[in-house]
Simulated assay, not measured.
Amino acid sequence: MEYFLAGSFIALFVFIAIDRPILLIKFKDGEIIKTRGKIPHGLLHDCAEIAKRNPITGTVKVYRNRFKPVKLVISKSIDNKAQQRIRNVFPYKSFK
C-alpha cells in the first residue's frame, strides 16, 4: 500500500510539475534557436523578423486552457515593444 501511495504522489508531482506548452519558440541574440509544436508558418516568419529587428533573448510559450482557447506567455527578458509585436502577429483564431 505504501508503494502505491508513493508512486501515486510521484506521478501526480510529475504531472503537475512538468511544463507542457503546445507551442514553444526560443530566441537567443535575435535568432530562433529552438521550436516545438505545430507552429503556423506565418507566425514563425513574423517572429524571426521581429527578432532580427530587435535582438531579443527569451521564450514564447502557448498553453491550451480550459477557459480561453490559448494562453500566450512571453518571458520577461523580451522587452515590452517586442512583446506587443509578437502579441499582434499571434494567430489566436487558428488555435480554437
Rank of each mutant, 00 (worst) to 15 (best):
F90V: 03
F95E: 02
I18S: 10
L5V: 14
P55L: 07
L44V: 00
F9D: 02
S94L: 10
T59R: 12
C47P: 10
A51Y: 01
K96H: 07
P21L: 02
P21K: 00
I78N: 06
A17Q: 09
G42R: 03
V60A: 02
T59L: 07
L5G: 12
D19W: 01
G42N: 12
K26Y: 05
N88S: 08
S8T: 14
I18A: 14
P55S: 09
V60G: 01
P69T: 08
V89W: 05
R87Y: 06
F4L: 13
K38L: 14
M1W: 14
P40T: 12
V89D: 07
R87V: 04
V73Q: 11
F95S: 02
K61C: 01
R85V: 01
N88G: 01
I16Q: 15
A48C: 02
L24R: 09
D46V: 10
H41C: 01
L72K: 00
K52Q: 14
F67G: 03
K38Y: 14
K93S: 13
K68Y: 13
E31T: 13
F4I: 11
I50W: 06
Q84T: 11
K93F: 09
L24F: 03
I10N: 05
C47E: 06
A17R: 10
F27M: 02
N65H: 13
D79G: 03
P21Y: 08
D19F: 00
D19C: 04
L43D: 07
H41W: 06
E31F: 06
K52T: 10
P40D: 09
I18D: 13
A48Q: 11
A82S: 12
G58H: 10
I16T: 14
E2N: 11
I39A: 09
L44F: 00
I86C: 00
H45Y: 11
Y92I: 09
Q83N: 08
M1H: 14
A6C: 06
F9W: 11
F15K: 15
I33L: 00
V62D: 02
N54S: 14
P40V: 12
K81H: 11
S94T: 15
P55V: 11
R20D: 08
Q84P: 08
P55R: 12
Y63I: 01
Y92M: 04
Y3G: 15
V14W: 09
N80K: 11
D29G: 09
M1T: 15
D19L: 01
H41A: 12
V70A: 01
V62K: 03
P91N: 03
D46F: 09
T59V: 11
P91A: 05
G42I: 06
S8Y: 12
H45C: 08
H45E: 15
E49K: 13
I10L: 10
K76N: 11
T59S: 13
P91F: 06
K96L: 09
R36C: 12
I78A: 03
E49V: 10
L43T: 13
K81W: 10
R36T: 15
F95D: 05
P55T: 11
P69I: 04
R36N: 15
F15A: 15
G37N: 05
K93P: 04
R66Y: 15
G30D: 12
L72H: 01
N80E: 13
D46N: 15
K61R: 12
G42Y: 05
G58S: 08
I25D: 07
A51P: 07
I25P: 04
R36Y: 15
I32Q: 04
V89K: 06
L72T: 06
N65F: 10
